[in-house]
Amino acid sequence: MSDTSHRRERQRERTLTEIKDFARAQLVASGPASISLRAIARDMGMTAAALYRYVPALDALVIELCTDLHNEVRIACEAARDADPDTDPVRQLLVMARELRRWALAHRPEATLIFGPPLPGVEQFHQQCEDLQCAGAQFGQIFVQPMLELWQAGRLPAVPHVDLDRLAGALPAHGELPIEVTAVFLTSWTRLYGILAAELFGQLSWAATDTEPLFEAELASFAAQIPATATPASRRNS
Results as ranks from 00 to 15, higher is better:
residue 3 D to T: 06
residue 5 S to D: 14
residue 6 H to W: 04
residue 8 R to W: 06
residue 8 R to L: 15
residue 8 R to H: 13
residue 9 E to N: 12
residue 9 E to H: 09
residue 14 R to H: 13
residue 18 E to A: 10
residue 21 D to K: 05
residue 23 A to Y: 01
residue 25 A to S: 14
residue 26 Q to C: 03
residue 28 V to E: 14
residue 33 A to E: 14
residue 36 S to N: 09
residue 38 R to I: 10
residue 39 A to N: 06
residue 39 A to C: 03
residue 42 R to S: 10
residue 43 D to M: 02
residue 47 T to S: 15
residue 47 T to Q: 09
residue 48 A to W: 01
residue 50 A to Y: 02
residue 50 A to D: 11
residue 52 Y to F: 09
residue 55 V to L: 13
residue 58 L to I: 12
residue 63 I to Q: 10
residue 63 I to G: 10
residue 63 I to H: 05
residue 66 C to F: 00
residue 67 T to D: 07
residue 68 D to F: 00
residue 69 L to G: 05
residue 69 L to H: 02
residue 70 H to L: 05
residue 71 N to V: 07
residue 72 E to T: 10
residue 73 V to E: 02
residue 76 A to R: 05
residue 76 A to F: 07
residue 77 C to V: 04
residue 82 D to Y: 03
residue 86 D to I: 02
residue 87 T to R: 15
residue 89 P to H: 06
residue 93 L to I: 11
residue 94 L to P: 00
residue 102 R to S: 12
residue 102 R to N: 13
residue 103 W to S: 10
residue 105 L to R: 09
residue 109 P to Q: 14
residue 114 I to A: 06
residue 119 L to V: 00
residue 120 P to I: 09
residue 121 G to T: 06
residue 121 G to M: 08
residue 126 H to G: 13
residue 128 Q to N: 07
residue 128 Q to L: 14
residue 130 E to Q: 12
residue 130 E to D: 13
residue 135 A to S: 15
residue 135 A to D: 12
residue 136 G to Q: 11
residue 141 Q to E: 14
residue 147 M to P: 02
residue 150 L to H: 01
residue 153 A to R: 03
residue 157 P to Y: 02
residue 158 A to Y: 03
residue 162 V to Y: 02
residue 163 D to K: 04
residue 164 L to Q: 09
residue 164 L to W: 04
residue 168 A to I: 01
residue 171 L to S: 08
residue 172 P to A: 14
residue 173 A to E: 10
residue 176 E to N: 13
residue 180 E to T: 10
residue 181 V to Y: 04
residue 182 T to V: 12
residue 185 F to P: 00
residue 186 L to A: 08
residue 186 L to Q: 07
residue 186 L to G: 01
residue 190 T to M: 11
residue 192 L to G: 09
residue 196 L to G: 03
residue 196 L to E: 06
residue 200 L to W: 07
residue 206 W to I: 07
residue 206 W to R: 10
residue 209 T to V: 09
residue 211 T to C: 15
residue 215 F to H: 09
residue 215 F to T: 03
residue 216 E to D: 15
residue 218 E to H: 07
residue 220 A to S: 12
residue 220 A to G: 04
residue 226 I to P: 05
residue 227 P to S: 07
residue 228 A to R: 11
residue 230 A to H: 06
residue 231 T to G: 12
residue 231 T to A: 08
residue 232 P to Q: 02
residue 234 S to C: 08
residue 238 S to A: 15
residue 238 S to C: 01
